[in-house]
Design a protein around this nucleic acid. Structure first.
Length: 497
RNA sequence: UCCUCCGUAGCUCAAUGGCAGAGCAUUCGGCUGUUAACCGAAGGGUUACUGGUUCGAAUCCAGUCGGGGGAGCCA
């Protein structure tokens, strides 16, 4: 058996492929089978003259996604999808498929999500999962090569720890348990045992968020390092993200092409990334230049919408007398235009809100999604914002020794509107300060006894961060929505399949 | 929780108060290598649901359910 991604090594030889029918076309004396085997696609040609009656009949009977074994000779041919094709001599049907719901035509998102288990076989989904795999593997390599130990934080936790966010509650032998929203606190304990550790696991948030950046179940990578301060933490985050981007660009050229990703944007992602303090970020948002920027954006959107509407009118006029093939093109273009017009409409509704949010932003308030996007507009790389007001950040964040109002936290915001991909910072290592914070936040001290122990027995400065895997995959793939970055996304209102 | 858009054939959509349609998919026929092939024919409908307005509702109104996008919150 030969895999399709190795078929070029077998030019001129007879090979057997085992896979599925991706698409099939028939002519009088020819059947074209696009076969897939998980490693790629390969066109196989069955010519009535070259095969037995039995093989010919089998080829004609094939349905989309039927499982097949094909034997044939490998020929280099530019007309074919991977540059090589198979001239079939033998064919056996492993299992004939029923009528396959996902045709090579267009489908809406609701239908595709309902058939996610089959959608995974489609080309773009296939490409996105391979990029995810590259990122996962690269994360392990990055940390392992630097002496980090991978350790697992528990998924059940007994406390509604950081208070604010909504956790999934579950019954744990007649007691309440919650699904973890972060492994960080446990990461701190593990870092005190091993120096540098990272966790790689699922995270659960019961937020009722229906946006392209949210899942209720997602994967987070959380390194935690003893004797690291905020600057060392930012250096590490920057090096890691640069490495991930470089690996994807190096390994997944073909996948990025299938995803129609603009690779030149990724090639510009080089360290150092801009680092801006929260205070400077607020000033930048308040500046008149930001208002002008947004006014400009509003005008651009309006001009674009006008142009698209004109194009729609002319397409409508053309549609009546268009030939079938052209009609198909027109339909697709109309779909694209309408989707873009919806997006523009949404933007035009939002721009005044963004303007107000930026202009009115006062020191002490947290940033919204739009503020973050505005801060990254000028840069091809992610931007790190550090030094947030302590009030808006979690109880465990260390305060800036020079300004008690400032927490030593950092967020990394991806370019192109992909939002926050990293949140982290230096942790409070002083027992008395931590006790004080726990009181201020009205948290149950008893639940944090073990966490406080870490400050009693050899406490040291330490830092860490959490990287959102799905948001990173979405950014590198250029996908609009995180639901396409995980095999089976869990969202508000989606638990099937 | 709030704002906003949507729900018509298996799928993607059209019909904007007057006979419910097209392309794809399916079945059948044709076609000299196709690239989402093409050409011809056939079958396929409780227009999400409930109620209202009207001579007449897919279309207008109210409610319910489901979905998309966004705010808040966040990775």
């Amino acid at each position: 058996m030969v895999y399709i991604n190795e078929i070029s090594k077998h030019a001129g030889q007879q090979v057997t492929l085992k896979g599925w029918v991706y698409n099939i076309r028939t002519s009088k004396k020819l059947v074209f089978i696009i076969a897939r085997d998980g490693t790629g696609l390969c066109q196989s040609i069955v010519s009535q003259e070259d095969v037995s009656e039995e093989v010919w009949e089998k080829a004609l009977s094939l349905q989309q996604e039927s499982a097949i074994e094909i034997t044939g000779n490998v020929h280099a041919d530019e007309r074919s999808i991977g540059g090589h094709e198979l001239h079939v001599t033998g064919l056996s049907i492993v299992s004939q498929a029923e009528e396959y719901p996902i045709t090579p035509k267009e489908h809406g998102i609701e239908f595709l999500m309902e058939h996610r288990h089959l959608w995974l076989r489609s080309r773009k989904q296939w490409a996105a999962m391979r990029v995810r795999n590259t990122i996962t593997y690269a994360i392990h390599r990055f940390f392992q090569e630097r002496g980090f130990i991978q350790m697992d934080a528990p998924i059940f936790t007994g406390n509604a720890a950081e208070g604010t966010t909504n956790l999934f509650e579950t019954d744990y032998f007649d007691r309440k348990a919650y699904l973890t929203q972060s492994g960080q606190l446990y990461g701190e304990a593990m870092a005190m045992a091993h120096g540098k550790i990272y966790t790689f696991g699922p995270t659960f948030r019961a937020e009722k968020s229906k946006t392209r950046r949210h899942l209720t179940e997602f994967w987070m990578i959380e390194p935690e390092m003893a004797y690291y301060d905020l600057d060392m933490n930012m250096d590490l985050a920057e090096q890691m993200v640069e490495f991930l981007v470089r690996e994807v660009v190096r390994i997944n050229r073909e996948e990025l092409e299938i995803l129609e990703r603009d690779v030149s944007k990724l090639e510009q992602v080089k360290a150092p990334f801009p680092r801006i303090s929260y205070t400077d970020a607020v000033a930048r948002l308040n500046a008149p230049a930001m208002q002008d920027r947004l006014d400009g954006m509003e005008k651009e959107r309006k001009v674009e919408a006008e142009a698209l509407k004109k194009e729609l009118t002319s397409l409508d006029a053309e549609f009546g007398q268009a030939k079938k093939g052209r009609k198909f093109q027109i339909d697709r273009r109309r779909g694209d235009i309408n989707a873009r017009l919806d997006q523009i409409e949404e933007d035009l509704r939002n721009i005044p809100v963004w303007k107000k949010s930026a202009m009115d932003k006062k020191w002490g308030e947290d940033f919204g999604g739009s503020d973050e996007t505005l801060l990254t507009m000028d840069d091809p790389t992610p931007v790190m914002v550090y030094g947030y007001p302590a009030e808006v950040k979690a109880f465990y964040m260390k305060r800036d020794p020079e300004n008690e109002e400032v927490a030593l936290g950092v967020d990394m915001i991806a370019p192109e509107g992909y939002g926050e991909i990293i949140g982290g910072g230096q942790r409070e290592d002083n027992l008395d300060n931590l006790l004080q914070r726990i009181k201020e936040h009205n948290l149950p001290e008893e639940q944090f006894r073990w966490y406080l122990d870490l400050r009693r027995y050899g406490t040291v400065p330490h830092s860490g961060f959490g990287l959102g895997l799905e948001r990173t995959v979405a950014w590198l793939c250029g996908l609009k929505h995180v639901r396409e970055t995980i095999p089976f996304p869990r969202m508000m209102g989606r638990l099937y399949p």
